[in-house]
């Protein structure tokens, strides 16, 4: 039953090896936009998640880490 976990973990760690992807720090003007933040609509997402959690058989999946300006 933990086989999916193994596959996912391998995949995610593997993805982090693609270190030539990405942009230079000064090229993040668009990514720094407040509407590009992963939690820019966190209230909407929280309310939606609450509805779907109580009306459907599965839930979860989201995370707010990463992206953005890359400043400091």
């Amino acid at each position: 039953m933990l086989k999916p976990a193994l596959v996912a973990v391998t995949l995610i760690i593997g993805l982090s090896g693609c270190s030539n992807l990405g942009v230079q720090p000064w090229e993040k003007g668009q990514l720094a936009r407040s509407d590009m933040a992963l939690d820019s609509e966190k209230l909407d997402l929280a309310l939606d998640d609450h509805i779907y959690f109580s009306k459907e058989g599965s839930s979860g999946g989201r995370a707010f880490a990463g992206g953005g300006c890359g400043c400091n």
Binding site: A8, L15, L21, Q30, M36, G60, A63, A65, G70
Partner: peptide, 24 residues
């Protein structure tokens, strides 16, 4: 008990990608 592992990758000046795995 939940565990989540995720990666967020900047793809270009305008695009980013996130992949998460959660075990609950």
């Amino acid at each position: 008990a939940d565990v989540m592992l995720g990666i967020t990758q900047v793809l270009s000046q305008r695009w980013l990608l996130q992949a998460n795995y959660g075990l609950s």
